[in-house]
Design a protein around this nucleic acid. Structure first.
Lengths: 206, 206
DNA sequence: CATTGTCTATACAGACCTGTATAGTCTTTT
DNA sequence: AAAAGACTATACAGGTCTGTATAGACAATG
């Protein structure tokens, strides 16, 4: 029984590639990409290192796949889904982001934003991993922009960028120990929404 | 002439310790602590590795000294000084933070926040470097809290924490490529100031 | 002059990193 | 049964990392 040497091994029922991806996700999202070696991913997944390298020819490929998976699981399946489940009106969906964050920040295994981590751990702005992280941050921005547009905000792009500043700032604040960071950011978001003048329920434009 | 193997060597006129500190500052602030080895600091400073280890018994000691220096040079001598130079009234000093940031974000060697970097690169919340980074973030918070109090804000602590969310969020946004992040955060700050109701002379209007 | 303290230069131990070589197992397909 | 493909296990090459050992240079102080 070739189990992982440390941590909880990934389910053996899944395909080899899926086991690699799951282990990389758990480890990279928690410790950052630089902070985890390929041997650790191999051990944690229960997949031999040679097999891992057959699926991903380099650690960089694995890292890029991890960021794509993070976008799938975190951005789309979790954040966007939760936001859309919790509210219908665009403006309220924007605010719901911080309700979702609030729950996230209070989880004992809160791991902060993988995209911000990947961004900050590469000083070269043309590093593929850093560029990919920027792209995934752009995906979140596009989602916010779309909500802002639907909410009737004039400068949807500028609004979305301000919203993302609130989101990223609250993540760092939460990781620095402020568990109420989401509530604080939501207050700021409410101010921004009020100032931007949405056509939510009141059609009057500011 | 034992010069540094790479990059620009630190001035030889300074004391040995000062040369170490300067090199560590330049390298750690740009590439993060994990991203720079002791050999690189040694080469860049022109100080032999053995001498370096006599001044700092471990890399962790060097890292903690770097964070202290960052607080000296960045937080106090730069951010606070610039803010206090640019405005007198507390509320305007708070807003001036983002004018200072705007200049910072536009520098070609903008390196983002060393405290956030140190925070995100350590997943163990009890790691000394991460705890130190949290402490230095707390120093900035205290400065903001004091300004908020002087501005007559009721919940000075909550206000300061919200202000710091804006600051950290704008830093990440700028590092992700949005050079106007400071201006956007300043707008949000103006909204927050208006909502908090300061005893300044003129209220910022949105 | 001799001693002491600081700094240098080099080499190295031991750990970990990415990536590969090799040989063997197990399953599926033909 | 034979062949092919996927996976495993181990070992290792070559690099980097932190930290130390060793031997010597240089300056200040006694």
């Amino acid at each position: 029984m070739p189990d992982a040497k440390q941590g909880k091994p990934v389910s053996r029922l899944a395909s080899t590639r899926e086991r690699i991806d799951r282990a990389a996700y758990e480890l990279f999202s928690r410790h950052g990409i630089r902070g985890v070696g390929v041997d650790t991913v191999s051990a944690h997944s229960g997949v031999a290192k040679m097999t891992l390298y057959k699926h991903y020819p380099s650690k960089e490929d694995l890292a890029l796949a991890f960021l794509r998976r993070r976008e799938d699981l975190w951005t789309r399946s979790w954040l966007q889904q939760e936001v859309e489940r919790r509210a219908l009106a665009p403006a309220e969906r924007l605010l719901a982001v911080f309700d979702v964050f609030d729950k996230w920040f209070r989880r004992p295994d809160f791991e902060a934003c993988s995209f911000a981590k990947a961004l900050l751990e590469n000083s070269d702005p043309r590093h593929p991993v850093r560029m990919a992280a920027q792209g995934h941050i752009g995906t979140i921005l596009a989602f916010l922009r779309q909500l802002a547009k639907a909410a009737g905000v004039k400068d949807a792009d500028g609004f979305a960028r301000q919203w993302q500043i609130l989101m990223m700032g609250s993540v760092i604040a939460a990781y620095a120990g402020d568990r109420d960071a989401a509530r604080r950011a939501k207050e700021l978001g409410a101010l921004l929404l009020a100032a931007a003048g949405t056509r939510s329920r009141d059609q009057a434009q500011a």
